[in-house]
Design a protein around this nucleic acid. Sequence first.
DNA 1: CGGTCAAACTAACGAGCGTTCATCAGCCCG
DNA 2: CGGGCTGATGAACGCTCGTTAGTTTGACCG
Lengths: 207, 207
Amino acid sequence: MAGVSTDPADLAVRRATRTALNPDVVLDAALTLFAQRGYHGTALSEIAEVLGVRTPSLYNHMGSKHDLLRTIVDRTTAGVLADFHRVLDPADTPTRQLREATRVYVHRHATHRREALVVNRDTGSLSEPAFGEMQARRREHEHALRAVIAAGVAAGEFRVESPALASFAIREMSVSVARWFSPEGALSAEAVAEQYSAFALRIVGAS
Amino acid sequence: MAGVSTDPADLAVRRATRTALNPDVVLDAALTLFAQRGYHGTALSEIAEVLGVRTPSLYNHMGSKHDLLRTIVDRTTAGVLADFHRVLDPADTPTRQLREATRVYVHRHATHRREALVVNRDTGSLSEPAFGEMQARRREHEHALRAVIAAGVAAGEFRVESPALASFAIREMSVSVARWFSPEGALSAEAVAEQYSAFALRIVGAS
DNA sequence: CGGTCAAACTAACGAGCGTTCATCAGCCCG
DNA sequence: CGGGCTGATGAACGCTCGTTAGTTTGACCG
């Protein structure tokens, strides 16, 4: 935009293509670009451009660039935990618990790919206390999954030498679905989630 | 360094702590910082600082910041392929091939964690033709692993519905070892590699 | 010792960034 | 219609960044 046209017809075109801004659309645009280019690889001016406004206008709808990241990470990690707790029925067998926990985890990574990509790549750019809070939620999920596997081993349902290793393997293969999954692909998110939870049960040697 | 001291004693201390620069030490410092902070999150001045020189001095030993990234990615992806081809014996059974392929892949990610972290995070910042070359190598590895799994299914050694999905799961859980592995941890790189290759065989339902 | 060269430095360039500020425009309400 | 408010703009701030260019320094060799 080296020379901004003041021709009334041009101004009308720009208004017509302009999105009505609000915090949600700003966050959504940020999410898309952060996922594509990374947090540091995305300039606020790029977010402004896709929204059809100038960079300073974003500040009417957001606090700071860091706030965008923090919000994305907080919501995503809280969502992961909420999924887990929603499907975890203490009365269930470890086998069923692991299957369900894996299924919702994979499903989230297939259906919220942008969030997953950002959370997996850019949490190192969070300032405290956001960084510490993110780590605590991540650790909570990790320990809970590991506990399911350990309970399965203790109950004789699973045969695996290291519940910790199995937990890492299962979590990480699930997270990485976000990297390759495409809604236009041959498999639905549900199908992938089912297959991956079957893989999880195989990893732990579920009988 | 707002005020650089010209006191001879201070100058002597700075020289004493200064690393003799060469392209390898620059690349090594870059690798460490890129792995920790990301490519865009690392300023050349930070690399210069850990090496005890001023930023422009780096240019005696490197072409550009992008060159550093390109070199890291090229070497790493070439190494992954070399590992694979080294252990892949066409006369082996698919089971043995998958075990070995997974083992060296995991081992590399446990023993070259910095490289893995950079390659998994920052290849999006590569310009062409480096980006295309990196993708070609990545695809080559992926297709080769998938072919091993498909051959195992065809030979009746593996029972898995989708060799492609299994390949993704195995590759991604292996790659992610770089995120959590610690040489000071309870398990050695070899032990983790063995466990993970056992997981891989379970995922494909190897008999 | 003097000359040469490599690599260190300082200074600077041009570009870009996130953010603030003052102003303007548009909309709504009394 | 006028006033107030919200949200847009352009201008600017202060800073950082990757890189270039000129100068200085130190080591080596004849």
